[in-house]
Simulated assay, not measured.
Amino acid sequence: MTDADSTATTNSGAADSRGGVRLEGITKRYGDQTAVDNLSLTIEPGEFISFLGPSGCGKTTTLRMIAGFETPNAGDILISGASVLNAPPYRRDVNTVFQAYALFPHLSVAENVAYGLHQRRTSKSDVRERVTAALDMVQMRTFGDRRPTQLSGGQQQRIALARALVNRPAVLLLDEPLGALDRQLREEMQMELKLLQARLGITFVFVTHDQGEALSMSDRIAIMRAGRIEQLADSDTVYAHPASAYVAAFVGQQNFFRGSVTESGAAVTSAHALVRGATASLADASQGEAAVRPEFIKIEKDGIAGSTDDANTARGKLLGVSHLGDTMQFLVSLGDDQSLVVRRPTPDAPSLRIGDSVLCTWEARHVLLFPADDSAAEGGYVAPPTA
């Protein structure tokens, strides 16, 4: 049973209040290709949950099924305790914010926000009150008379949010809504979205391929792979205790060593290093992978007198140095196609030159051991076929 299955089973009644969502064994196929494969998940009312994964993993298809834009071939979808399987999108208590804001250029900001209310034949007095409140939520009240073309990308995103929130949905679905923004604005909007969600208490279901977005905003993250949930957990757990080499490779950066499992399942012997973990967790004599994050590795010029208590060492040649602001990144060649990425806080980083022979060390407690997985080799991942 997966983490998602377990959550759906133990919390089967938790999503019955307004804003709760239950996915019960939903499957979506396009011809011979399965985009979402028997996925079960409970989303709690008021939760901020993110679907994270590469293109083609099924995250957007899952969101579109919740929204009603796609119909599952099997399974059921419940929102606030009621099945919406046969309900069209406009009959579901959800609203969707897309990457493309889809604002009407011929309407003012206020008219864009009010559009959905007019479609529902809301009274004029209610429309004025609710539009004002929605624009206040996103700090755009003074822009009500402007046209979308007079706004920046971040301002347009705020208007798209206000238009979705003005209908007071139980669930807000966000399909990579920050993808078109530059990095600084995207980071600002991440904080604003999280603060807005906490203030409103609305269930947010967020789809992204950006791990930073998911880690910074989510109560829980569903890492998807080939239409299934590989791991479902909070940000700390996903980052520090990934359930598989696939998750470890996708969330953050890892240095992977592949080879034979030795030392009674507590180490992996690769062509370039013997990498020891803190516990025996693999079958001896099988193929395994050891992973260590760049921030857990220390680096110094080789040959410096001294001793280390670290269980793991690797020697190589320095290929590159990058200044990342608060950290320095070092790229080390261990030979052939095996390289090592090391990151040290800038004030503590050693002074090294490209071409130097270097010694890298790290502690066994920072090593993750996994069975060999072709989708997580050499610190990367292989995306499943695009669905």
Rank of each mutant, 00 (worst) to 15 (best):
S152R: 03
A377H: 13
Q287R: 13
G13I: 14
L274A: 09
G13V: 12
E70D: 11
L319N: 11
V97Q: 07
A82Y: 14
D145K: 10
A133Q: 07
V247E: 08
Q231N: 09
V171H: 05
R183E: 15
Q253S: 12
I77A: 06
L178R: 01
E363M: 14
R91F: 07
S270P: 01
F104Q: 08
Q99A: 05
A160Y: 02
P294W: 09
R163P: 10
G19Q: 09
D126P: 00
A364D: 03
A233D: 15
S244N: 03
D326G: 14
S244W: 11
F296P: 00
R146A: 08
P347H: 09
D3L: 02
I354N: 14
S17Q: 13
S235E: 04
A133S: 04
I297D: 03
Q184K: 15
A249S: 14
T10A: 13
V21P: 00
R29K: 14
D337M: 12
I304D: 13
E300W: 00
S281F: 05
D348C: 00
F69I: 06
V321G: 01
D219N: 11
P345T: 11
G116Q: 09
G75Y: 04
G335H: 10
G25L: 02
Q329D: 12
L324G: 06
L52G: 10
F143E: 06
A214V: 12
P169E: 10
I49S: 10
M224Q: 02
R29Y: 02
L232K: 09
A383M: 08
Q139P: 08
A267I: 11
A110W: 04
D219I: 11
N112V: 07
S375L: 12
Y90S: 13
S12N: 11
G355K: 08
I299A: 06
G320V: 12
T42M: 08
D3P: 06
S307D: 13
A233I: 08
Q99L: 07
V21M: 10
A114C: 00
A35N: 00
R343Q: 15
T308W: 11
A198R: 15
D374Q: 14
Q287M: 15
I297T: 05
P72E: 01
E192A: 09
Q287E: 15
T386Q: 14
G46Y: 08
F206P: 00
M328F: 12
I66T: 03
F370L: 04
A243N: 01
E378V: 14
G153T: 01
G335Y: 13
T71I: 01
H241T: 11
A245C: 02
D37I: 05
P347N: 04
A349T: 07
S281Y: 05
L282D: 07
